[in-house]
């Protein structure tokens, strides 16, 4: 048991000291990796633990990005505060989405498609609305001041997203250990059975999706402050929804470490392939497609899930050989 904490400790040391031996370019990769690890972890709550796969988390990401940006640019609201307001609005929207889908018992692929359509609705809406400057997007004026969520170098952004990712991982860890977590897993495994055992399925799913949506918005605000520019095609696009779900799928849905491990595999891999094949477009996306298929075919529980299985089997194996030894000797 202790070994696990040593490992986590080492990882944290690595992550915290990363800026010391990385280059600016690697730091950018690290930032994007952590950002999607964060968002994927938020996604994990409703999709991993509850088994309701959302294909439209860009909706919440975009809401976060636009809320803090509009508040800043139009009303001079500090983006750190705008971040929380964005999260609240995203949570409210998630609540509505959850209500519409869960109340009317949409499950499986129907639920997924609804979330997809939902994100598209938001995208088209923003795209056509003058208040959000339509497709022209909103630019955040350069004003380097950490108090206003802008940093001189990448390092500031890196630590911000690192701390955010750690916080959300702790949150998900606590959820996984809590009553809510057990309920969600029960719902995922067999919703009807869970219901008949007294689990309030509707209420738990609503909590999960609201939490998931609200938390995802933090990543949106971060993205807006990092790029200093938002537009519908970048923050509400289905590409974002894909980038949010990929890490958890690869790393392991419904595990605490899954989205983190997954993002560390998927994001740098994307960079690596697009660099190796820089004269051939889209090869990194071919790689993504292949990875998705391989994972679903051979490792649907993800890398971390597979690791857990391995550990459990070993434990069982040890226990059995122990019992055998005892029965022989006694």
């Amino acid at each position: 048991m202790k070994k696990k904490w040593v490992l986590i400790g080492l990882l944290l040391v690595f992550l915290f000291t990363f800026p010391l031996y990385s280059t600016n370019y690697l730091l950018h990769i690290g930032i994007i990796t952590l950002m999607f690890a964060f968002a994927s972890q938020a996604w994990n709550i409703i999709s991993g633990y509850s088994g309701q796969f959302s294909f439209g988390h860009a909706a919440f990401f975009g809401v976060g990005a636009y809320t803090s940006t509009v508040l800043l640019v139009e009303y001079n609201v500090n983006p750190w505060i705008g971040m929380f307001i964005g999260a609240i609005i995203a949570a409210a929207i998630a609540f509505v989405l959850g209500f519409l889908t869960f109340r009317y018992k949409l499950k499986g692929a129907y639920f997924s498609l609804t979330t997809l359509a939902f994100a598209e609705i938001l995208r088209v809406f923003v795209k056509n609305t003058d208040f959000f400057r339509k497709t022209m997007g909103i630019m955040i004026p350069l004003d380097i001041n950490p108090f206003w969520y802008q940093f001189q170098t990448r390092v500031g952004y890196y630590y911000t997203i690192l701390i955010l990712t750690i916080i959300i991982t702790v949150i998900v860890y606590l959820i996984s250990r809590s009553r809510l977590g057990f309920n969600l897993i029960a719902i995922r495994e067999n919703e009807d059975a869970a219901q008949s055992l007294g689990v309030r399925t509707f209420k738990n799913k609503m909590i999960a999706i609201t939490l998931s949506g609200g938390l995802t918005a933090f990543a949106g605000t971060f993205y807006a402050q990092y790029l200093l520019f938002v537009k519908p095609e970048t923050v509400f696009a289905s590409d974002i929804s894909v980038s949010i779900l990929m890490p958890a799928i690869v790393g392991g849905v419904g595990t605490v470490a899954g989205p983190i491990v997954g993002s560390f595999i998927v994001t740098p891999l994307g960079e690596l392939t697009s660099q190796m094949f820089s004269n051939l477009a889209g090869t990194n996306l071919i790689a993504y497609g292949v990875i998705i298929i391989i994972i679903i075919l051979f490792m649907p529980e993800g890398v971390v899930g597979r690791y857990h299985d391995w550990v459990n089997r070993r434990k069982k194996g040890n226990k059995e050989t122990q019992e055998q030894k005892e029965s022989v000797t006694s």
């Binding site: 499950k107 692929a109 051939l280 477009a281 993504y288 497609g289 998705i292 298929i293 679903i296």
Partner: peptide
């Protein structure tokens, strides 16, 4: 026999492969 969303993901992966191979 896999859960719905996994099948969705696989066909999604197939789409990415076909589209981007065509792109190349």
């Amino acid at each position: 026999d896999a859960p719905d969303h996994n099948i969705l993901l696989i066909t999604f992966g197939i789409m990415m492969i076909i589209e981007n191979t065509a792109l190349v």
